[in-house]
Amino acid sequence: MRMARRSGGTGTFLYRLFGRPLEMLKSSFAMMWRTPIRTALTIAVIAVSLAVPVTLYLLYSNATSVTDGLHEDSRISLYLKRTVTEDRGRALAESMKKREGIKSARYISSDEALVEFSKTTGFTEPIVYLAENPLPAVVEIIPDETVSHSAEKAKALLQELLKNQLVEQGKIDVDWIKKLNALADMLRTLTFGLGVMLVLGFILTVANSVRIDLTDRRDEIVVEKLLGATDRFIYEPFMYASFWYGLLGGLAAWWVNEVFMVCFDSSVQELAKQYTPDGFDLTFLPVSAAGLMILFSIALSMIAARTALGYVSRSVEPE
């Protein structure tokens, strides 16, 4: 007799710990399945409101990694006057190497420049037909770290180099970097602003779904209250449903992000091929970050649901 009671107690405990949550997970899933379109819409809204800021953030961090990379070997191109012979050009490059702030200098003759240009662009034909090679010879300079990390110093160096009589004009990649940086900054602000708005939309969507679910099940709730159910008992199925909303919405957001990134990757590679032969390594959303996003989604969904339940269920009373 005593044994039986003890085992009954353990059974109850285990049931409360695992059995009931499992049952609730199943039954709340079934409840959502009863209104598939509404459920799908809710999940879609959650997915979009998570995927958009996360994807933007990924693009932002990719853009900053590009600009960081450019910093490393931001280069200065000095276009030589047409009258400068190849020997003098090479000599100039050699002399530049010895200057302070310069890591390396390379002379590129106008013929080499043309070959390189055709290779990277694929535009061989029209240029070959031109009677004369339009490209000037170039001395390509890679500044050392002290210079390349500072746009100011790089500019100063360029000004110095332009004083040389043989140089027609010069160009620095810093402008490019600035533009990319500005773009990245904008992406960050956009990510943040959109993120805040979309998270608000997320909360309102879940709250509204719960409100509709609850109104749908008004009769059930009234009966449960009449039989002495606690708020916790009444909230339970809706809380489990909000868990599902969060989980499925988060997973869908991951999927949307992944699909977008795969498409984006192929166009980025297309573009990158024109600059470097190895292409560009686009960073995808790491699994750990995706996991965090899904956890965030679940937590936010459940908080939103709980808040909505507190407000709405008070209006459902037996009469």
Partner: peptide, 21 residues
């Protein structure tokens, strides 16, 4: 509760009280 079976309706007071299955 019309969306639940006869059995579930009858069992509801016990479930609400948290009785073991």
């Amino acid at each position: 509760i019309n969306s639940r079976t006869v059995y579930d309706n009858v069992a509801l007071p016990l479930v609400i009280c948290g009785r073991p299955p």
